[in-house]
Nucleic acid binder design. Structure first.
Lengths: 227, 227
DNA sequence: TTTATGAATTAGGTAAGCCTAATTATTAAA
DNA sequence: TTTAATAATTAGGCTTACCTAATTCATAAA
C-alpha cells in the first residue's frame, strides 16, 4: 500500500534528481523540499528502501528503483494532467493550478485520469510546456533545451520553462513571452551573457542570462548550429 | 483545523441522523458506519466535543452543533456536486461515482467546487435526486416522500431514492424506473402492502413495500390526498 | 427485582509521522 | 593534517488514530 505521503516522498526524490541529474539526493535536500526535518526523512527512507521503492546510502543518496520511479512518474503524470485540466477546462489561472493539483494528484482512480486526459485530447505537454509521461512512464520526445544554450542568429520556439515560481512566470507575462512564441537571438552580450531577442510583433527584448537559463526552446531550423 | 478524518466523522453523524431522525447516533452506530471500533470512535467524539463540532452523552448520542453541521453539510454538498460532475460531465456510470467522490469531497478548494458547480448549471439535485445544499447549508425546497406513503389513485413523479445500494439501483433499472418518471398507484395490496403501479409507456409494475419505501416521489396533483 | 445481554467506557498498547537534542561522520578550510 | 563546519544518524519523545481486553452501566427479560 502506498499512502499519499509515500507518493510525495517518491515524487520529491524524482523531482530533485530531475532538477540536477548529477547531484545525489540527500536526506537534507528532501527534508527542505518537503518542509520536514532530516530525521523524519531518514526514517521514511528506511521504509521506502524496505518496500523496494528506493535505494539509499550516505554516499549515493536516495535513488528510485524502477518500481519507485513508476510510482513517482504516475504522480507526475496525474499532476500535469490535472494542472492542464484545471487550466484549460475549468479556466483556473496558472498560478492557482498547482496547489489544487497537489491534492488532486493523490485521488486514486486511474479511470478518472483517463477520462480527463481524453477530454483534453491526450496532450503531450501541459500548459507550462512540461511533458506528460504516458502510463508506462515514457516521456514524449522533444528537443527542449535552455534558451541560454543558443548561439547568435538562432531562431527558436518557446516550449516551456524550467522554473515555475510565480515571480518568474510574472516576469514572462510582463515580457510578453508565452508558449510557442518564436524568438530570434540577435545578440549575446559577452560581458554578462545577456540576450537581445527579436520577436515577431513585440519588438526587441533584453534578457538576463539567469532568465534565459529557465526558458526551454527548440531550434526552428532543422540543422541549426546550436548545441 | 479539520482533517479529512474529522470531516468523515461529522458527515457520518449527519448521515446517520438523517437516515433516522428520531434515533440517537451512538458510538457503535458510527463505528459500524465508518468500519472502526467503538473505543476509537469514542475517543474522537471527545475531541469533536472539545472542538465544538458536536455534543455527546450516552443518552442522547452524538449531535452536530451548528458549526459541526455546517462542516458536514459542506462535505455533503461537495460530494453531491462531484457525483453529479463525474456522472454528467465525465460520463461515469452511476455505480462508479460514489467511491471517487468520497475522495474528491476532501479536496480543499471552494473555488474548484464553485467552478464545477457552475459548469453543471448550478443544479439543485444530484442525479440520484438527492438535494444539493447551498453554501449556507440550506437545502432546496422539495416535497419528496416515500412512494410507500401514497394512497390508491395517487399520481406522482419519481424524484429520488433513499437507498443507494447497487442492488437496489440495478433493480430500478430492471424495472425501468428512473428519475422524473411518472407513476400512478393503481392498487395497494392489503395483505403485504405491495403496490401495483401504472406507467406511461412501460406498462404495469408490481412493487414490494420494501422497494416502495426507498423511492422518493412527489404528488403531481396540487392537493392530492396523500400524506 | 434479579439477571443476562449488549452498549459504553476505561485501560493500555501499537504504528505512523512528526519533532528536538545529542552524537558521529564527512568534508572543506586553514 | 588538524580544525571547523556541515551533514547524517541515533536517541528519545510527542500526537493521532487505530486496536483488544476488561470493566462498568443500562435495559429488557425472566
Amino acid at each position: 500500500m502506498k499512502t499519499y505521503r509515500e507518493e510525495n516522498y517518491l515524487k520529491a526524490i524524482y523531482q530533485l534528481s530531475d532538477i540536477d541529474k548529477h547531484k545525489q539526493v540527500s536526506p537534507t535536500d528532501i527534508a527542505n523540499w518537503l518542509e520536514l526535518k532530516p530525521p523524519t526523512v531518514l526514517e521514511k527512507l528506511a521504509i521506502l528502501v524496505k518496500k523496494g521503492y528506493i535505494t539509499y546510502n550516505k554516499f549515493e543518496g536516495a535513488k528510485l528503483t524502477s518500481t519507485g520511479k513508476e510510482i513517482a512518474l504516475n504522480i507526475v503524470r496525474r499532476h500535469r494532467i490535472w494542472e492542464t485540466y484545471l487550466y484549460k477546462e475549468l479556466k483556473f489561472s496558472w498560478s492557482e493550478v498547482h496547489e489544487i493539483a497537489e491534492q488532486l494528484e493523490h485521488v486514486n482512480s486511474d479511470k478518472l485520469i483517463d477520462k480527463i486526459y481524453d477530454v483534453l485530447g491526450k496532450p503531450d505537454f501541459d500548459p507550462h510546456g512540461d511533458p506528460i509521461p504516458n502510463k508506462m512512464g515514457k516521456f514524449p520526445k522533444s528537443d527542449r533545451r535552455p534558451l541560454s544554450d543558443s548561439i547568435k542568429g538562432c531562431k527558436c520556439v518557446v516550449l516551456g520553462v524550467s522554473e515555475h515560481s510565480e515571480v518568474f512566470l510574472n516576469y514572462l507575462t510582463q515580457q510578453k513571452i508565452g508558449l510557442n512564441d518564436k524568438l530570434v537571438v540577435e545578440q549575446i552580450n559577452e560581458y554578462d551573457s545577456s540576450f537581445k531577442l527579436g520577436t515577431k510583433n513585440k519588438g526587441h527584448i533584453l534578457m538576463s542570462s539567469k532568465a534565459a537559463q529557465q526558458i526551454l526552446v527548440q531550434c526552428i531550423k532543422p540543422n541549426c548550429a546550436c548545441k
